[in-house]
């Protein structure tokens, strides 16, 4: 299925942002669109985008490979990305992530058995004053969760379970 057919409005809006002869600029927003449903970008989607922008599939894949927010493999519906960078670590982020692992019974990089949450450690998210914190990357985009505790995180996961 092509993005132009699935998301005609969004594609049009995205393309309208850049000069017509520079439509390659649309590759990043289009990749987000392609990733929306499944949480990762498959080969067909890359082909589709390549065709739309008149670049090669390799060029599209090269973008996917470069940026950490694009994924080419399936993971949990929500990627829970805990910042463990220096400023957050100075405020207990490492322990927070550790405890979270314990509570969820998974290691960093793994996905809960129900396929809902994949736990990841990531670099600074520009919320250093509100550590521990993480973002969730899921079908509804990226959301920040700041000043978190393990308990509040478990509640959040429960809530996610409910809606899914």
């Amino acid at each position: 299925m092509s993005l132009e057919k699935t998301y005609p409005k969004e594609v049009k809006l995205i393309l309208s942002k850049y000069p017509a002869e520079q439509k390659r600029s649309a590759v990043m927003p289009l990749l987000y669109l392609a990733q929306r449903e499944e949480g990762y970008i498959n080969k067909a989607a890359m082909q589709d985008i390549a065709k739309m922008l008149e670049i090669t599939e390799t060029e599209v894949a090269s973008i996917v490979g470069f940026y950490t927010l694009y994924h080419d493999e399936k993971a949990g519906k929500y990627r829970m990305q805990v910042c463990t960078d220096l400023p957050c670590a100075l405020r207990g982020a490492d322990e927070f992530l550790n405890n979270l692992c314990g509570n969820l019974g998974i290691k960093v990089g793994e996905t809960t058995a129900d396929g809902l949450v994949t736990l990841e450690g990531v670099m600074c998210l520009a919320a250093c004053d509100k550590a521990p914190m993480f973002q969730t990357q899921g079908p509804d985009g990226i959301k920040y969760h700041e000043n978190m505790t393990v308990d509040r995180t478990m509640e959040l996961i429960e809530a996610l379970k409910e809606v899914n």
């Binding site: 090669t56 599939e57 390799t58």
Partner: peptide, 19 residues
């Protein structure tokens, strides 16, 4: 014909062709 590219980045950078 841009059929070669780099995948990933940093030390993991590697040549790929997806054509």
């Amino acid at each position: 014909e841009a059929v070669l590219g780099f995948d990933e980045r940093g030390r993991n950078t590697q040549i790929v062709s997806l054509s």
